[in-house]
Nucleic acid binder design. Sequence first.
DNA 1: CACAAAGGCAACCATTTGGTTGCCTAATTT
DNA 2: AAATTAGGCAACCAAATGGTTGCCTTTGTG
Lengths: 103, 103
Amino acid sequence: MIEANIYKALGDPTRLEMVKRLASGDDYTIGELSTNLGITRQGARKQLQVLVSANLIRLTPQGRETRVDLELTTLTTAKQFIAAIEQQWDQRLAALKRFAEEE
Amino acid sequence: MIEANIYKALGDPTRLEMVKRLASGDDYTIGELSTNLGITRQGARKQLQVLVSANLIRLTPQGRETRVDLELTTLTTAKQFIAAIEQQWDQRLAALKRFAEEE
DNA sequence: CACAAAGGCAACCATTTGGTTGCCTAATTT
DNA sequence: AAATTAGGCAACCAAATGGTTGCCTTTGTG
């Protein structure tokens, strides 16, 4: 059940917003990413840590700032897991269809 | 921030296991789905309710049993959201590449 | 009819979560 | 050197979460 952690990390409005921002194409430091979220810097930092623990982002200190980068591979894993479920489901429906059509 | 709820619902090992089972192709009643999860029937039922609230499954009472069905469209929404993020990211990388290559 | 099966509902509990305030350190600016 | 900026860390708090036990209702079966 390793996958659940990824979804859990995405399952919070603040953290999802952070991921959206990171994907938007701009460069972000921890400080920049922590503004306009409706919570304090320290609160935002805690959420950021959850994303780090789930391997959804990577932090790289540079001087007194710290760069935040998206870990695309983890997101891809999450997507593929859902795709696999969909595929199982589709196969099931196809089997039902075949069953209904045979005489 | 409507999407966060979906991920939140998937972000628990018990609930993810339920979704996996439902996708596996077998038919499930609430009772069947609530066994071998390491928790009580009532505990499982509470988790099932979370999946219902997130529109990931649908319950249809039939006599004294209740059928559980996967709502594939919701899962697809979740997948597509991740795909959109990936796409944004890819475009960003492409832009960076173009920038690096121009003289 | 009597009883077993499938499920619902509520109260309760410990832990986790999402957030806060307060203070400290290290790197820059002026 | 002094002040500012970027960030870290810990204690604390209320609410949500994940689970439990106990009991009740309805549906089907001997």
